[in-house]
C-alpha cells in the first residue's frame, strides 16, 4: 500500500492505482470528461490536472499512478486557473446554446463552467461547423458540440467491438466520423447507443419523442425485459411516462446496453395498451368489468372440471413475466384448477 497526501489529507492507496482513484476513495472530487473506469486511461481532455509538489508540469489524475510520499493539491490556484483556461478553450469551439440544448442539466461542460465561473470564451476565431448526422433512427450526432474526449470511439472499439466510428483528420480539424463521413446509417453501427450513454456533452443524443429537462425526471433502477442477459438499467421517468433509458455500471452488463434495451421502450406508454378487460359476446370482444371477466373464466373452469376433468384445461405461463407471477400461474393450475398442464415458451 502507498501512502500519499491529497489536499493535506493522508491517504492509503493500492500500488498501481491512479491519483483519481485514490482521491475518489477519500471523497475528493476531481473533474473529468474523458475518464471511464472500463477504458484504458488515455488522458485526452486534461481537465483532471492536479498539482504535484515538485512536479515539472501538472499531471493528469486519471493516468498518473500513485507513488509513495506524493503531495497532491486538487484545487490549487494554478490548477483552477489551468482548468478555467481549458474550459475557455473548449467553449471557443462549442455552440453556447444551453437554453435549448437537450443535454442541459446533465452536461459535464455546463456543470464545470458553472463550478469554475467560466461565463463565456475569451477567444474569437474559427469554429467547427459540421452537418448534424441524423441518419440513425435512434440518435443523432452533432459534431459541433463534440469536445473530442474520445470515449465514444473507445467504447465502440474496446467494449462494444463494432468499430463504427473513429477519429478523422488531425490537429484542430480532428473530428469523430464514420468512414468517409458517409453517415451512421451506412456504417457498421448497430445502434447500441453505448456511445450516446458515455457522451459527457450534447454531441450524441437520443431522438427523444418527448421534450424533457433532466431536472424534471427521476430514475428507477430495474432489469431489462428483453433478452436473457438481464442488463441493469435506469428508467428515466417524467410524470407518468418513461422518456429515456440509461445503462447502469453494474454486473452483468457493466454500463453496456443494446438497441432494444436503450431505445425500444415506446411500448410502455403506448396508446394501444390494453386498458380494460374484454369478453367475447356474439363473436365480438367488448369491454367488461373485472368481476364480469373473472366470473366468466371461473364458470368455464368449474364447468369443464365437472364435465371433462381438470386435465382438459391447460395453462401457458410467460417467460416475459415476473418470477413471482410464474409461481402463481403454476400454483393456479395445480392448486386451484388441479392439473399439471402448465408450461411456458422456454422452447422459442
Amino acid at each position: 500500500m502507498i501512502t500519499l497526501k491529497i489536499n493535506g489529507l493522508e491517504v492509503e492507496a493500492e500500488e498501481g492505482s491512479t491519483i483519481l482513484e485514490a482521491a475518489t476513495k477519500v471523497g475528493v472530487k476531481i473533474p473529468t470528461f474523458c475518464h471511464d473506469p472500463r477504458l484504458v486511461p488515455h488522458g485526452s481532455c486534461r481537465i483532471c490536472v492536479v498539482e504535484l509538489e515538485g512536479g515539472r508540469n501538472l499531471p493528469t489524475a486519471c493516468t498518473t499512478p500513485v507513488a509513495e510520499g506524493m503531495n497532491i493539491q486538487t484545487e490549487s490556484k494554478e490548477v483552477v486557473e489551468t482548468r478555467r483556461e481549458i474550459l475557455d478553450l473548449i467553449l471557443a469551439n462549442h455552440p453556447l446554446d444551453c437554453l435549448t440544448c437537450e443535454k442541459s442539466g446533465r452536461c459535464t461542460l455546463q456543470d464545470l463552467c458553472f463550478k469554475y465561473d467560466v461565463k463565456e470564451t475569451t477567444h474569437r476565431g474559427a469554429k467547427k461547423c459540421h452537418p448534424i448526422d441524423e441518419s440513425n433512427p435512434f440518435y443523432y450526432s452533432d459534431q459541433n458540440k463534440c469536445i473530442l474526449c474520445g470515449k465514444c470511439v473507445y467504447v465502440c472499439s474496446q467494449l462494444q467491438g463494432t468499430n463504427a466510428i473513429g477519429f478523422a483528420e488531425r490537429g484542430f480539424p480532428t473530428h469523430i466520423a464514420t468512414p468517409f463521413n458517409e453517415g451512421l446509417a451506412h456504417s457498421t453501427c448497430v445502434s447500441c447507443g453505448n456511445c450516446v450513454s458515455v457522451c459527457p456533452v450534447g454531441a450524441l443524443m437520443p431522438k427523444s419523442k418527448e421534450k424533457f429537462r433532466y431536472w424534471e425526471t427521476r430514475t428507477v433502477r430495474t432489469t431489462c425485459s428483453y433478452c436473457g442477459v438481464g442488463c441493469q438499467m435506469d428508467l428515466v421517468v417524467k410524470e407518468n411516462s418513461v422518456v429515456g433509458i440509461d445503462p447502469v455500471m453494474a454486473v452483468p452488463n457493466d454500463g453496456l446496453l443494446c438497441v432494444k434495451g436503450k431505445f425500444a421502450f415506446n411500448f410502455i406508454n403506448h396508446p394501444n395498451r390494453l386498458k380494460k378487460p374484454l369478453v367475447r359476446k356474439e363473436g365480438k370482444l367488448v369491454e367488461a368489468t373485472w368481476e364480469e371477466a373473472y366470473q366468466v373464466i371461473a364458470d368455464q373452469i368449474n364447468e369443464i372440471k365437472t364435465k371433462d376433468g381438470a386435465d382438459a384445461i391447460a395453462g401457458f405461463s410467460s417467460a416475459r413475466a415476473l418470477t413471482e407471477e410464474n409461481y402463481l400461474m403454476q400454483k393456479l393450475m395445480r392448486a386451484v384448477v388441479g392439473t399439471n398442464n402448465v408450461d411456458h415458451c422456454a422452447r422459442l
Binding site: 430495474t222 454486473v251 410502455i268 366468466v296 415476473l322
Partner: peptide, 28 residues
C-alpha cells in the same frame, strides 16, 4: 380469445427476473 385481461408491463410492477447466469435481479 374469449376473454382478454389487460396486464401491467415490467415498468409498472415490482418483482424479480432471473437472467441466463441464474442471477435473481430486482424489477421496480
Amino acid at each position: 380469445a374469449d376473454v382478454v385481461l389487460p396486464a401491467a408491463s415490467f415498468a409498472e410492477k415490482e418483482g424479480t427476473f432471473v437472467n441466463t447466469e441464474r442471477r435473481v435481479q430486482r424489477v421496480r
